[in-house]
Design a protein around this nucleic acid. Structure first.
Lengths: 144, 144
DNA sequence: TTCTCTGCAAACGCTTTGCACGGAT
DNA sequence: ATCCGTGCAAAGCGTTTGCAGAGAA
């Protein structure tokens, strides 16, 4: 949930740097990945369909799979969910889902494993960490 | 991948303790969860169809969802996979998938977060950790 | 023109649902 | 007789594939 907002030129640069030809669809999807927290394909679709009425989910899938390939985004699942979620690929972090309010937080991890990227002699190229529990806010507001 | 092997009476006890009425299907599925590493529904189906020729996948889904409810098993996904995997619910640990040999390992985690079950004041009820990389064995055998 | 991107429609695969049969109590 | 577990068939839903038309170079 970086919430970063970039203009079109900056978005273009990101894509070109990663070897992806910009298009309005790709730029807009990238923009959402940078702004929104952890959108699913449907989230992205609903966010863009007004602005780009011809947009199809196929294009979103194509684009996201391209982003995965090029290392621009990464995919993960919320436990028990049947849909993939995507996020802009930056520093490794954990996801925390509050089972009360449903909000998903990004959590920094300082454990050795995630810094050294190695465990028991196994080289780690990718790490996904998912927590479920009750967030601070919900613990304090005792209204059930 | 506990590899534990229990007899039918011991399996029965586990189910009854968790409030699940034993049946041959449920016992056999539990047995597989205790023996096998991280089976998918299809893994379980193929493991049992010879022994129980009338077995249907619906029953496996029913049983596993019951196990999830009762805290007997937990579900997770391997990144990029479209099918759920299940495992007997015991001490929290990480999964490590070697992208070369495809093997899935269980990894013990000693980080604070996983022991204290608390981070930044957020109470953690559930933790899923997934690593991807190259396992020791594959690093040593340089045959690509 | 040539090549790539887009997007509709259909296919696909995992999971859930509806429902009827059958065994257990 | 009632209840519940089982399993067939069909539906549901997220994702991928095939393909044709549009657009960029």
């Amino acid at each position: 949930m970086s919430g970063k907002v970039l203009n079109m030129d900056e978005l273009k640069k990101i894509l070109i740097n990663k070897g992806v030809k910009p298009s309005i669809q790709r730029l807009k999807i990238l923009e959402i990945l940078l702004k929104k927290g952890h959108p699913s394909v449907d989230d992205i679709y609903r966010a863009l369909i007004d602005e780009i009425p011809t947009l199809s989910k196929t294009t979103i899938y194509n684009t996201l799979n391209l982003f995965l390939e090029k290392g621009i985004a990464q995919a993960f699942t919320i436990a028990g969910d049947n849909e993939l979620r995507y996020e802009y690929l930056n520093s490794p972090h954990a996801h925390f889902k509050c089972t009360k309010c449903g909000k998903i937080y990004d959590i920094e991890l300082n454990c050795d494993v995630f810094i050294k990227k190695e465990i028991n002699g196994f080289r780690i190229n990718k790490a996904l960490v998912y927590f479920e529990g009750i967030c601070n806010e919900c613990q304090n507001s005792k209204i059930s």
